[in-house]
Design a protein around this nucleic acid. Structure first.
Length: 216
DNA sequence: CAGTGGCG
DNA sequence: ATAC
């Protein structure tokens, strides 16, 4: 908390600039975390977490679900967005208002106006789970940023270059942190290191990540 | 098509 | 444990 120009106490927004077009908003989602977690519970009751397979046939270590008009999926046929959950054949659950609002606020705080995501990928990491370096490039609209929200256990994020062979920077992410990247950083490689065991008062033994995108 | 993964 |  700091004293602002009007003499009122206001929470200080901690922005960590990573690269041009990429910023970490520390604890940005902290106040909304319990609502977000409640909505993760609701969404994943309708569209349960599952371990999708890569086209190469490997099961991903992070369990995934989606909400919104479009959901990211992978199977032996490839990576894509689709409007139905392949497990049920039903449309993905609607994107909760808590999700949309948080994503929009975070985008503005990072300097991206008018972000209206149509897709939210929900990843659940348990100890041992990781995500190798990759680009988010299955979207049609690269003019819109990516907003990534961390909830629960801490995990080390890696943020690299436009080519996979560039050494990434490592950024520890904690509960409530939000990373936003777009513009010249939109196609940078990124991932997370293996989650270490731990116990979080709100999520127990796991970390959740919400990734908001404009897929179409 | 696939390295959002696994191996030596 | 990390790098390629």
């Amino acid at each position: 908390m700091t004293q602002d120009l009007f003499g009122e106490l206001s929470p200080e927004l901690i922005r960590e600039h990573l690269m041009e077009g990429a910023v970490v908003l520390r604890q940005f989602a902290l106040a909304d975390a319990e609502w977000l977690l409640n909505d993760i519970q609701r969404v994943t009751t309708q569209a349960p977490f599952r371990h999708m397979k890569t086209p190469g046939g490997h099961a991903m270590s992070a369990a995934m679900s989606c909400c919104g008009d479009q959901g990211w999926v992978t199977d032996t046929r490839g990576y894509r967005y689709q409007s139905e959950d392949p497990t049920s054949g039903q449309p993905w659950p609607a994107m909760p208002e808590s999700f949309r609002n948080l994503a929009g606020k975070a985008a503005v705080a990072a300097g991206f106006e008018g972000f209206e995501p149509d897709a939210c990928l929900i990843n659940r990491y348990e100890p041992g789970a990781k995500m190798g370096l990759h680009q988010d490039k299955d979207e049609q609209d690269f003019s819109q940023p990516i907003v990534s929200v961390s909830l629960g256990l801490p995990q080390v994020f890696q943020f690299g270059g436009l080519k996979r062979n560039e050494r990434p920077v490592r950024v520890p992410l904690a509960h409530g942190d939000v990373v936003v990247w777009g513009g010249p950083a939109r196609l940078r490689y990124h991932g997370v290191l293996t989650l270490k065991a731990g116990d979080h008062p709100l999520t127990g033994v796991c970390r959740y990540n919400l990734t908001f995108r404009k897929a179409r």
